[in-house]
Design a binder for these strands. Structure first.
Length: 281
DNA sequence: CATAGATCCTGTATGC
DNA sequence: TGCATACAGGATCTAT
């Protein structure tokens, strides 16, 4: 379940190992993974190099040395970007293979549930000094982006007629937050997931934003520890998941603040974990 | 337009 | 043991 911190770990790995190398071959093993771009992917990429790795929220993109195109990657729920030696056997769920002219480690997109995607796109202005793939212009800046506008976010959120968790998951309002970090942030801020966003004070939203950043920053630090030079780890479970979670996945376990058993409820077709005492509706 | 809900997908876990 | 069902959930599409 890669959210912002996990995707950032992947970005760093790919940026280090898959850039500045001439792409020699693109092999598509699953049409869904490339959104019907099978022929286009090779045509755009072969002979080019990725110049760097960028990210906004949960989206990654690798700008090409042609100056205006890029490879856009979304990991979905189970996607991984791995650096693997050519002689390494194909993964069971290998969807796309990118080989390089130097015959060094390949970049492989592996995705069990096929919610992820790898596509090409053109870069357009992001409204400031940067660029963004055209297809993800609607994705809001994420809370770790220096250009994220706190006050604008707070105002937009409070004007909505919806529940606070639903809005935290709305990638056009704030990006990078998924089910796990939404629950963790709300637990820290002592806000119930179904609370009407319009009823949360400005200062409370401001502290919620601080908690979102804190939990993501901590998770990112943990993710960094499981990073291996040739294996770009998307998992993150080893370090962060086992130790630092206060709400997510802890149904029945005592709240780390007040010892009340954590509760689980169904919401938006998924689980929400919360402390019934700390987080009142 | 805004919001709510269904849907896609497959491996793993659980229930009978 | 075996089969059926529930579950995980990000983004997109459809319905209201």
């Amino acid at each position: 379940m890669p959210e912002l911190p996990e995707v950032e770990v992947v970005r760093r790995g790919v940026g280090q190992w898959a850039t500045q190398r001439v792409i020699s071959q693109v092999e598509v093993r699953h049409a869904r993974a490339v959104r019907r771009q099978e022929a286009e992917l090779s045509a755009v990429l072969v002979g080019r190099t990725f110049v760097c790795a960028s990210r906004r929220g949960k989206y990654l993109w690798l700008p090409l040395d042609d100056g205006d195109q890029c490879l856009v990657v979304h990991l979905g729920m189970s996607g991984q970007l791995l650096m693997q030696l050519a002689e390494q056997a194909d993964e069971l769920h290998l969807r796309v293979r990118f080989a390089f002219a130097d015959d060094g480690p390949q970049l492989r997109f592996v995705d069990q549930r096929t919610f992820g995607s790898v596509t090409t796109d053109v870069l357009v202005s992001d409204g400031l000094e940067g660029q963004i793939p055209r297809a993800i212009q609607h994705i809001a800046r994420d809370p770790l982006d220096p250009a994220f506008d706190d006050e604008l976010f707070i105002a937009r959120l409070r004007k909505k007629d919806s529940e606070i968790k639903r809005l935290l998951l709305d990638q056009s309002l704030i990006s990078g937050i998924g089910n796990i970090y939404a629950d963790e942030s709300l637990w820290r801020s002592r806000i119930h997931s179904t609370r009407a966003a319009s009823s949360v004070s400005k200062s409370k939203v401001r502290s919620l934003l601080a908690d979102v950043r804190a939990v993501m920053t901590e998770a990112l630090a943990q993710g960094g520890t499981s990073f291996d030079s040739l294996y770009v780890n998307v998992n993150g479970e080893s370090g962060y998941f086992s130790r630092a979670l206060n709400a997510y996945g802890r149904e029945g376990e005592p709240c780390n603040r007040c010892s009340t058993p954590i509760r689980r409820s169904r919401f938006m077709n998924r689980s929400s974990f919360y402390c019934p005492r700390c987080q009142r509706v």
